[in-house]
Amino acid sequence: MTYLADVVALTRKDLLLQLRARDTLPAMALFVLSALVVFNFALPVEESRLAALGLLWVAIVFTALLGLGRTWAAEREQHVLDGLVLAPCDRSAIWAGKAISTFVFLALVELIALPAFSIFFSPVSGATVAGVLLANVGICAVGTLFAAMSSAGRGRELLLPLFFLPLILPVVVGGVGAGATDDPLRYLGFLALYDLLFAILSWASFEYVVTE
């Protein structure tokens, strides 16, 4: 089996699992909708477009966190990871498969969140959509690795937000900047740079994290 085939097989496994169990995806979708409703009441009456846009990013990051906390649940609870580590494939393929499946979940949730946001608050621009897509790459690349790290410890999901939020701050800056300023390309370029840098780093270091 080639590397690519491994990644495809692992991604398929995660997507199938989600399709059968349906535990994470509906929870994420409901969470993002409720968060938007709460924000509506948290904002002042004469809310600005920019404030609402910022809150959209808060909602996206927290929804991603909710999903990421569950990414390795099956691996830990059912001891899937022990089998995967023994499988004759490159270990970074496990990370890649997980990151891609998480990306799919997040994109599906945003398919609900973005239209909902434009109905509740203000229409989203093309630059924001591009920013969200680029941000997803970074969130999933980094988040999958750090979720694996936090699930290895006793703290489990409790720890993930602690290091995920400071780490993801540049993504929020890039995403908000893309939607809020007249010069979105600069921020999108920054997001792409972040994605590239941290995806390579996560890809390279995943092997060390799962070594027992």
Binding site: L169, V173, R186, F190, Y194
Partner: peptide
């Protein structure tokens, strides 16, 4: 790696 990236991000955030 986060140090330079955050620095860049904070500098970019200044704009808005």
């Amino acid at each position: 790696v986060l140090i330079p990236v955050s620095f860049l991000a904070i500098r970019l955030a200044e704009n808005f």
